[in-house]
Design a protein around this nucleic acid. Structure first.
Lengths: 407, 407
DNA sequence: CTATTTTGTTCAGCCGCGGCACAAAGTGAG
DNA sequence: CTCACTTTGTGCCGCGGCTGAACAAAATAG
């Protein structure tokens, strides 16, 4: 037998992927910075940039803008290609869906929301969101390199099934990844060269964390912990060295069942006082003595209450109660994960902004050492971060190996 | 200025490090397997193996043993060099210290225990263990490539200071890494070419996890969670894709303050019913109604009790109580980290072996999905795993880049 | 003993990349 | 404006690691 081996996909320029990621995340605004970040010679960086430009992924400005106050020849500016390829991002939430086209750099090119009560059969809404995305794509005329789907449920790997669609009526174990891929096929969406698109699916909080890490409040963090709450329950996510940590089966960071109030409310998990039932919008509304509305509007209702009636002592006390519980949960997570940054989303973001010091104090107090307790806790900064995160997941193969993904 | 750049340490054969690691961990018993694992051609694998042999790190058997039941030319066998270089491993525990020389493959070449009450000044005992190691080294006549120290405390990065020497009388923030390095210098230990040795220091449970992952019960796991208890308190560690996850400041996996018994004993952290006070040897002895002995012997005392009097209903009930608490803590960790294997050390190992089903049932019951709950829970299998782990940490630079570490 | 299978070895050639020299494009001093 | 200086871009050469292929070696099967 003549000598065969596994095809080396990373063939060609090894620095192509890292270089694209640097431009994508805005960490390489010029070719000079790119050279330094990659740790290669200027010659190599130049060749890499030229190759990425030839692939239509980035743009190298021929007319470099002079950097103020610095001497020497100004470096060429790098940016993502303004009319380059996009990926299809889709999100399903309690109120309906949203489709979007997202280019490199997290730029949302087009977006289309859709309201509907989520039906028991996940394939219907997945088909709907993909069709909306296909329409956007047809309008834009730009090539599509991938597709990502965010769902409000844990997604098991490697099968891509939704395990706990808590506030959806989906059956447990719905094969959302495969349904998504099939919907892409049905909608006639194709990748470069007519190859079929393979969809990726993930938990919305996980994907939001990825987006915040690349383009939002988590930028530059080595170990980023995100915690967020939508309508019911609390989700977590961890980004380690730029990669989402989903655990061995995609089930990591199920933080909802940390005990934060030993004498608290019973939880469906069998315990009492879990974060899930002590620090979500429903808990806030209940503590404030308000009648919770329909489950798909709990977040809006809570935000409204927080914004308009925070002066009311009852509301304020309810907020502080939730913040204290959340702080206990965060302290536990900080002790276990020791992140260098924490970003809060959903209602937790508003609660943090309402009283940043209280939450930070609780976390610092219950963390084991001042050092780990002094971790910065920031509100999320991206709109539609789950959607952008779904796009990030879809971009990943391109970032890992641009040649293979486009060739 | 002529073009300079950061020296590319990984210059030369890029596959040298991975190849050494494969032999080191026993995953490349033959050159043919090495070829497949590295994903290179036979020619390259041959060159790499020859180079590692020339460096004195591995041995390539000229007379390959025929593999039974397979055709074709038998492949050369690979093994670590029997008289190759070693690293110095040191451990400090409640009863004293232990020094050892450890070769590649986790082979303990020589070891020397030392009993002493740990003095308040950490430099004394660190000097003592290094001197013991230096004596072993002089006897062996083998070159020393590194040194690692395991301490029963969290070690903060990047400064290498011991933060919570719980059952030692050390001051908080003792610079153990620097004290260790200085002791190595004082003892006249030198690396290849007379370069000074830089010591590495780590938490004993963290290092034990590393050892179990490379050579023990954790072999092959992608996400390995280790939990162990020595005399007081509970420690945890996580190995992700072969690397220890120590968090952004070395403080990750401080699992001792997970709440596992809301109505439990008060803990110095301010909460009640923490894992630290509910699932350590002291908790077991107390629950069994025994008078705890001196703090440095709690583990022995507990083991003794478990082995000789497990038939006693009081002892058994105490064990089950601790197992139940431990199970709650493990379930919480499994929900957050979703490892694909759990390894228990110290007294937890004996408790697991006494009644494997009970612990597994508790974990499965409190894990969110059967899938993550069905994670295998195994007892540790290595003797002196913290010591071997200290050696692993010391070997790491060599495994990462053999040429740079030896050149 | 021959055919087959699997592995080791040698060698030529490609190609990525470093190093260098030089050009280009800016700032600042006089 | 000119000149010195600094920083960046580009073309070219050469090294060296790695692939690919042909060939040799060492075992088993029949």
């Amino acid at each position: 037998m003549t000598q065969t081996r596994t095809t080396r996909l990373e063939r060609g320029r090894a620095a192509l992927g890292p270089a694209l990621e640097l431009v994508h995340t805005g960490r390489a605004p010029t070719r000079a910075v790119l050279t330094a970040e990659l740790g290669v010679t200027r010659a190599t960086a130049g060749a890499v940039a030229a190759e990425l430009e030839a692939l239509g992924l980035i743009q190298v400005d021929a007319r470099p803008t002079a950097a103020a106050g610095s001497q020497g020849r100004p470096s060429h500016r790098l940016s993502v290609a303004p009319d380059g390829p996009v990926v299809l991002a889709a999100q399903i939430h309690a109120d309906g869906y949203r489709a979007a086209l997202v280019g490199l750099g997290g730029r949302m090119v087009a977006t289309a929301p859709g309201c509907m009560t989520v039906p028991a059969d996940p394939s219907h809404i997945i088909d709907a969101v993909v069709e909306a995305g296909a329409a956007l794509l047809a309008d834009s005329g730009r090539p599509c390199l991938g597709a990502g789907l965010a769902v409000p449920s844990a997604v098991a790997e490697p099968d891509g099934t939704a395990l706990n669609p808590l506030h959806l009526s989906w059956p447990a174990g719905a094969p959302v990844r495969d349904l998504f891929t099939r919907a892409l096929e049905k909608a006639g969406l194709r990748g470069p060269g007519g190859t079929p698109l393979t969809g990726v699916a993930g938990n919305d909080v996980n994907l939001a964390a990825l987006a915040e890490h690349r383009h939002g409040a988590g930028r530059g963090a080595r170990h980023l912990l995100c915690v967020a709450t939508g309508h019911r329950g609390v989700g977590g996510a961890l980004v380690l060295d730029g990669r989402l940590h989903t655990g061995s089966a995609g089930l990591a960071l199920e933080v909802g069942h940390l005990t934060v109030n030993p004498a608290g409310l019973p939880c469906h998990c069998g315990s009492r006082g879990c974060l899930d039932v002590e620090a979500d919008p429903l808990a806030f509304l209940t503590a404030a003595g308000r009648e919770p509305g329909p489950s798909g509007s709990l977040l809006q209702q809570s935000r409204e209450l927080l914004r308009t009636e925070y002066a009311d002592p009852t509301v304020r006390a309810a907020a502080e109660r939730v913040v204290d519980r959340l702080g206990l949960g965060l302290a536990g997570l900080v002790n276990i994960l020791n992140p260098d940054r924490v970003v809060l989303g959903g209602l937790h973001r508003e609660l943090l902004e309402a009283d940043p010091e209280r939450l930070r104090a609780v976390v610092a107090d219950r963390s084991l050492w001042g050092r780990s307790g002094s971790v910065p806790i920031l509100p999320s900064t991206l709109d539609h971060n789950s959607l952008v995160g779904a796009a990030e997941a879809a971009w990943q193969p391109v970032l890992d190996d641009p040649l293979a993904a486009l060739g």
